[in-house]
Design a protein around this nucleic acid. Structure first.
Lengths: 198, 198
DNA sequence: TTCGCAGCTTAACAAAAGTTAATTTCCATT
DNA sequence: AATGGAAATTAACTTTTGTTAAGCTGCGAA
């Protein structure tokens, strides 16, 4: 249950040479959050500025479209960072909802508190760059997949690169993350079986 | 021709209270780059880690797909940052090509040099957070548009929110950025005329 | 075990996008 | 002004996706 702190301390040492013993001011301001499956982490309209590291479980970020349907923006799982980007980047109430798909353990910190700590302890700054770059890398990869690949190709890549994900996440969320309907995803699966089984 | 430095100095003051007079160590390491229309800024395979602020002009970032076709990832223009993200984030030779669509003026710095400066002058650090967040905000917005909107809706939004872009950028690049073919873009335009002119 | 319900699949049809190729339009250069 | 070439449009046809609705399946609660 404390592996995340080990991981992050190791990261801070690798990035900036900060010894685990010197990370107390940072981790003193973090707190553990446990959520059950289907429990909401961040509500629509929530103004809190949360940054979290996922120890275990899967989180889904989505929004409600004008027509009332949900659109899944992304999924994040153990070992990844998740942030309320509307409140942190745009300083606006969140248009997105963050909900646990499985029981989840998070190590969270308030972004404003983190900024205060960084003023006093600039030696932690590389950690902020790290998670910003990680989130940027993730979004750029998604963008790339949308301009270079068809929905079927995006799904095939998901199956080969993140196989456990499709076993842990309901297909309708996978579909909307790929930018298609669940009906289309079913057809893609059928086409893939047809090609493979021949 | 020096407005970018004014802009960035003002930004640094707003973000961190750094006076323009105290920014010399930073701007001493930047350099101006002028490119003609169609000139390449970053080649495929290029390992340089360039970060630039666009003073004037439009840059296109694209890659060559397996089938030999180009896919435009994004366009950036005056007032925006552009970065060789493959080399900076993944420390790999760039799979992307960055090319000027118009004559362009950039204020550039090598990312490695910037990191050295930031070690000596941590007071500039908020600037790095700023451009990382800006780039993250841009990519997240693009992702959002892909999961919530149809190609036609994405194009309509581009027309209303960035009207000058469609006058300055050939349609085939707009199309591939929207994830569709130029033929499809033509049909979308026709549909839009039909609906408007009725 | 049964019931109910949500999620997935299938079907049928409409709408949109991909593909290839022909045609037209628009510039840039002579 | 004439011309060559790239970009955009149009056309014809194929493929894929969206939409709506009907079954099917699996699983948890009663």
């Amino acid at each position: 249950m404390l592996e995340s702190i080990d991981t992050l301390q190791q990261l801070l040492f690798d990035l900036a040479g900060v010894l685990p013993a010197d990370t107390e001011p940072l981790f003193a301001m973090t707190r553990w959050v446990q959520l059950e499956a289907n429990e909401t982490y961040i509500r629509k309209g929530d103004a809190s500025r949360r940054l979290a590291f996922i120890e275990q479980g899967i989180m889904r970020a989505y929004l409600i479209k004008d027509n009332g349907e949900e659109a899944t923006l992304f999924l994040r799982w153990e070992g990844q960072f998740i942030a309320s980007h509307d409140t942190i980047i745009h300083q606006q109430p969140s248009r997105f909802i963050y909900k646990a798909l499985e029981p989840i353990n998070l190590l969270e910190i308030d972004y404003g508190v983190l900024e205060d700590i960084l003023k006093l302890h600039p030696e932690y700054e590389p950690l902020r760059n790290f998670f910003l770059m990680r989130m940027l890398a993730d979004s750029l990869k998604t963008m790339e997949s949308f301009v270079t690949q068809s929905p079927e190709e995006r799904y095939r890549e998901l199956v080969t690169e993140q196989f456990d994900l499709i076993n842990r996440v309901p297909g309708k969320y996978i579909a909307s993350m790929l930018g298609i309907t669940p009906v289309s995803l079913s057809r893609i699966r059928k086409r893939m079986h047809a090609k493979t089984k021949s």
